[in-house]
Design a protein around this nucleic acid. Structure first.
Lengths: 108, 108
DNA sequence: CATATATTCAACCATAAGGTTGAATATCGG
DNA sequence: CCGATATTCAACCTTATGGTTGAATATATG
């Protein structure tokens, strides 16, 4: 299966998240994906390779075009991982924050 | 606020995720956190700085000890981000299930 | 005070990441 | 066949990352 490291790393770059967001609107060719970005087409191509290696997109070669499609499967693991920490921001968060605020007040 | 890039980047390293998991069990000093790792204490110290810069842990200096505590707040954004893609993996699952339902119907 | 402990700081090193440019490959449309 | 288009490959550069070792700083303890 896909490794959480790879998924998180792939997704940590804002350009790559933007590319995923674009593909969430529908499949697209490389140049279409590249259009909104300042960087070169080659740079976009590299980012797409990272996403592909992470299993987040899939490529269908149709003639000279490569049509990329979103494959969100690996994100399930991200969701599962972050879910483990949900209770830490829903539970007792205010008490913890207050604790450290108090400590900082005592110790400047 | 904290930036999603920083959070995702901080969390993409398995050692740092392990450190967060340790801190989910309770606050700890640097050497305690470092104990299970092969790497040097200095390397651990660096990882903790990355987590701290991302706002995922907070540090309370008590004498010569630094006591680190989990601060899961920034993970909310990760949860929110990944949630946007939930429908893409449930859709895919639905398609897969439909596929197998069809197979069973064809081949009982 | 002297020494041990906890932690960071600083310098350094190897490799990875993100970008560029230029050439190569493949396909499309006359 | 030819020229335009879509995309990758290859080489290169700069900076970031993750690790090391050794010294510095601060605090605890006999």
């Amino acid at each position: 299966m896909y490794r959480l490291d790879h998924t998180l790393n792939a997704v940590s770059h804002p350009a790559r998240r933007a590319m995923l967001a674009r593909l969430a609107e529908g499949s697209a060719r490389v140049t279409e994906i590249a259009a909104p970005f300042e960087m070169s087409l080659n740079a976009v191509s590299k980012h797409l390779k990272v996403l592909e290696a992470a299993g987040l997109i899939e490529r269908e070669k149709r003639g000279r075009d490569h049509i990329l499609a979103l494959r969100a499967g690996p994100l399930r693991q991200v969701s599962a991982w972050v879910h483990e920490y949900e209770r830490f921001w829903t539970e007792r968060l205010d008490r913890l924050e207050a604790h450290f605020r108090q400590k900082r007040k005592e110790n400047p």
